[in-house]
Amino acid sequence: MTDAAAEPTHRTDPHDGRVHAKLNWLRAAVLGANDGIVSVAALVVGVAAATTDLGAIVVAGVASVAAGAISMGLGEYVSVSSQRDTERALIAKEREELATMPEQELAELAEIYRGKGLSRETAERVAIELTEHDAIAAHLEAELHIAEADVVNPWHAAWASAASFLVGAVLPMIAILLPPPEWRIATTFIAVLVALAVTGWLSAWIGGAPRLRAVSRVVIGGA
């Protein structure tokens, strides 16, 4: 009965590859949105401080949005691709070691569990059972703290970053274009603070983190 009662709770615990993927795109999305808000606002405010010509502000803003979205997307793709390649290389190396030196790998796995507080007998038994069940998964988790299902996807990060940059850039663009010239800079500054607060709150809500801390961090940094 205890096992049956515990099973539903265990299913809802976030201990699978979906959490890793979620954190990957959430990080990229928050970074993209924050950059879209701040960088585009900084540029259009700078142009608005130099001229009241709406055409010049629009051209500068659109150029900033296009360049920023492409740059963020490509930057995330390159960065996460490097991480993915490293993870794949580590997995391949672990597979080779398991194939060529299984006894040494089994002893290494047992030693890891001994280091976590298990007795020699228990650690060896755990290592044997985990190896028999899924050797590569056991060693990746214990030695490298990764799983094959958790290898990051660079496309997810790239699209999340580029799309969130575009969304973040919309508000400062609207805020700088709609008000009369004398209110453009002040309105944009206030709009940026609001957008940053919303970004911080949404990221904390999606990630299940404390809201106030996230909002404060994003707003203070962006301001």
Rank of each mutant, 00 (worst) to 15 (best):
A169M: 07
I220G: 08
S82Q: 09
S79D: 06
A223C: 12
M173G: 04
R120Q: 15
P8F: 04
A63P: 01
R11Q: 14
A5K: 13
A142L: 05
E105Y: 00
S81T: 11
A41M: 06
A204I: 01
D3V: 13
A29G: 06
E111V: 10
A195I: 00
T187M: 01
L196V: 06
G68S: 02
S164T: 07
W205V: 12
V30I: 13
M101C: 14
L31M: 12
W183D: 12
L196T: 01
L202D: 07
V59G: 03
I185F: 00
A149M: 09
A107K: 12
E143I: 07
M1S: 15
W25E: 05
V198T: 10
P180Q: 14
I136A: 08
V59C: 01
W205L: 14
V45F: 01
L202A: 11
F189L: 15
E76M: 10
H139S: 07
A4S: 14
D85T: 09
A169K: 05
V170C: 09
W205A: 14
E141S: 14
G200L: 01
E103D: 14
T131G: 02
A110K: 00
T9P: 10
Y77Q: 08
A66I: 12
A160G: 07
M1H: 15
L74A: 14
G32Q: 01
R125E: 11
E132R: 15
L177D: 00
Y77R: 05
L166T: 10
N34W: 04
D3S: 15
L54C: 04
A48D: 01
A147W: 08
M101D: 14
H20E: 13
I220E: 08
E7Q: 12
V58S: 07
L26R: 02
N153D: 14
R217F: 08
A99G: 15
G61Q: 03
I70Y: 09
E87M: 09
V192E: 04
L144W: 11
L98H: 00
A4G: 10
R125V: 05
R114F: 10
E105S: 02
T2E: 15
V45S: 03
G208H: 08
V219C: 06
A191E: 00
L130D: 06
D35G: 02
W155D: 04
I220K: 11
I220W: 09
G73M: 05
L23P: 01
R114A: 11
E97S: 12
S39C: 08
A149G: 09
I146P: 06
V215F: 04
P172Q: 03
V47L: 03
L118E: 04
V219P: 02
H133V: 15
G32T: 00
V167L: 12
R213W: 13
E124R: 06
L74E: 08
Q83L: 12
V170P: 03
L118Y: 11
I70W: 13
E132L: 15
I190Q: 11
S71M: 09
A28I: 05
K22C: 10
G207A: 13
R213H: 14
M101V: 15
R11P: 02
I112C: 08
A169N: 06
T100Y: 09
A21G: 04
E111K: 09
V218T: 06
R84E: 11
R95L: 13
